[in-house]
Design a protein around this nucleic acid. Sequence first.
RNA 1: CGGGGCGUAGCGCAGUCUGGUAGCGCGACUGGUUUGGGACCAGUAGGUCGCAGGUUCGAAUCCUGCCGCCCCGACCA
Length: 444
Amino acid sequence: MRLSRYFLPTLREPPREAEIVSHRLMLRAGMMRQEAAGIYAFLPLGLRVLKKIEQIIREEQDRSGAIELLMPTMQSADLWRESGRYDAYGKEMLRIKDRHERDMLFGPTNEEMITEIVRASVRSYKDLPLNLYHIQWKFRDEVRPRFGLMRGREFLMKDAYSFDVDQAGAHHSYNKMFVAYLRTFARMGLKSIPMRAESGPIGGSLSHEFIILAQTGESEVFCHKDYLDMAVPPADVNFDDISGLQQIVDKWTAEYAATSDMHDANAFAKVPAASQVSARGIEVGHIFYFGTKYSEPMKAVVATGDGKEVPVHSGSYGIGPSRLVAAIIEASHDEAGIIWPEAVAPFKAAILNLKQGDAATDGACEELYRGLSAKGIDALYNDLDDRAGAKFANADLIGVPYQVMVGPRGLAEGKIEVKTRASGAKEMMSPAAALDLLTRPPAQ
RNA sequence: CGGGGCGUAGCGCAGUCUGGUAGCGCGACUGGUUUGGGACCAGUAGGUCGCAGGUUCGAAUCCUGCCGCCCCGACCA
């Protein structure tokens, strides 16, 4: 993308309303724009990151055996009356009337709808297990939206719903999501820690929040430091291996890890002092098993092998892609701006033309830009007539992994300079070597 | 919803106390000189001062009501 033809309204100073670093940087980098309290428009740069995050989530959900569909944002109140949540949900749910005075709502979550979809077509235990997910905008009329995308009212959510014939099956479905989540966050360059969480009104032991550590996190968390170095399950993990998956989950739940809600000071005290981590964290995912909470009132039943009908056992599994955009920035930035992990970076590289109008420099930039485009690499070519200093500052702000600096000094020796945003390391190399470096695929 | 703060040009702000023709910096635009870490010169455009009512010869400024936004708390992907 040529910057001269792109839409990237960057700001030198952050708008006053932005307090936390991710919010400030997103506004400055021209990634988004606020439209109302807790409601944001994604600008082109922000959308690129959101799409990358979405895609990683999608790939890992698919790998685990979940199946994507897409449910609407608008829902009928009737479904929610069936489950009893229409009255129970409270003011967080945005209620709307259509032209016929029918009660509608903007979905804050989709348990009812997915249960309705499943009960309509699933009749036999042979149709299970099933895990259906979608990535769709949600609206929760938060009392106090804040911190930009971190706690918006309208937000994108990946929500998956599993259906099994019994609790043992549901447990395995839960474990699949547990493992998929570990992989998902790791691929985004995040160290996520599963922490025991409140399981809500239904009770039960199966609920985990996936937390990443960040100074500006909303919750106070306590855990064993070993979590920070634990190896994430590989891409070829066998999701059908019930005991193998259980072993992974056991390993990841063996050490102490809890948010302040679930914190047990006595248990934490048993962790060796040198291994105690007490920090702030951001919740990026939440999984829980809720059994027959919806299948019973909504009569989502299947026939078992012996001909009886039983309500299905379910769980739901959420990840907030829009929140993740902010969370990744919270976890990865410096004074100068964002530092995108390669897997979610809006562009792989920025090409900085250090002497606009110089025939040799312009030519070298063009050649590199075309070379990358030909190989399908997204590079942002800063071809604007700015001072070089402004280009450096903007490249740092936007935070793409590589900055390729093309100027007369280097070209005199047939070299261009490649700076790695994360480390700050700079290296002179031939344009061919740079092309080679930038077309190398990121690690999965 | 309780407490606090703020609405003046795209962004950051001054001006409000003490009423008298709306300003500064950055950004944008035009022309020129420039180009290796946020350039310089000259010029230009851009604001019903959040909205409505009131007081006054005169309101960004005083009064009343409303709307919006942010922060702290209780609640949450």
